[in-house]
Amino acid sequence: MTDQQAEARSYLSEEMIAEFKAAFDMFDADGGGDISVKELGTVMRMLGQTPTKEELDAIIEEVDEDGSGTIDFEEFLVMMVRQ
């Protein structure tokens, strides 16, 4: 866990972390443990947004600390705390 990830967790109660985990699992449609650009786009479109591929890439790049091209749960928490 990076310093950013530990800091993000410090702002959240266990209840909030559990709620974010449920949301993360909804995004992680294939159950792979991370959110891909495609999965992020699908959920955002379900919520009425129309992000471009470039916008989706930028969202993932902003929090993808390990350079995997996807968002894992710890990175997702950082993203949610920043919102």
Rank of each mutant, 00 (worst) to 15 (best):
M46L: 11
F24A: 00
D30L: 04
A6R: 11
D64M: 15
Q4H: 02
E19M: 03
E55T: 05
D28E: 05
A18S: 08
S36C: 13
I17L: 06
I59V: 09
F76Y: 01
F76P: 00
S13R: 04
D30G: 11
L56A: 03
M1N: 13
E65Q: 10
K53W: 03
Y11L: 12
G69S: 10
D3H: 06
E62I: 08
K53F: 03
T70Q: 11
E55L: 06
V63G: 07
E62Q: 04
A8N: 04
M79S: 11
A23I: 04
M1P: 02
A58Y: 05
R45H: 15
D64A: 04
Q83D: 01
D64N: 13
V63N: 14
R9A: 11
Q4S: 13
M1H: 15
Q4C: 11
M79E: 05
G69P: 04
A8R: 08
V43M: 12
R45Y: 03
E39Y: 13
G31V: 03
F76Q: 00
T50K: 12
A23H: 15
I35G: 00
R82A: 06
G33T: 03
F27K: 00
T2M: 11
R9I: 06
D28W: 01
I71Y: 01
S36G: 10
S10K: 12
F27R: 07
L12H: 14
A23G: 05
T2D: 15
L77Y: 06
I71M: 11
G41T: 05
S10W: 03
D30H: 13
Q83H: 14
T42K: 15
G48R: 06
Q49D: 11
L12R: 02
I59D: 01
L12W: 09
T70D: 06
A29V: 08
D3Y: 11
D66W: 14
L47T: 04
S10I: 08
S10R: 09
Q5N: 05
D57E: 13
F76D: 00
E61V: 05
D30I: 13
Q5P: 15
D66Q: 14
G48Q: 10
V78K: 15
A18F: 10
D30V: 12
M79T: 13
E15Y: 01
G48M: 03
L47H: 03
E19T: 08
S10Q: 03
A58L: 11
E65H: 10
E74L: 01
F76I: 01
A29G: 10
E15C: 02
G69Y: 03
L40A: 13
F73N: 00
M80Q: 10
I35M: 03
E54V: 09
V63F: 15
M1C: 15
D57A: 13
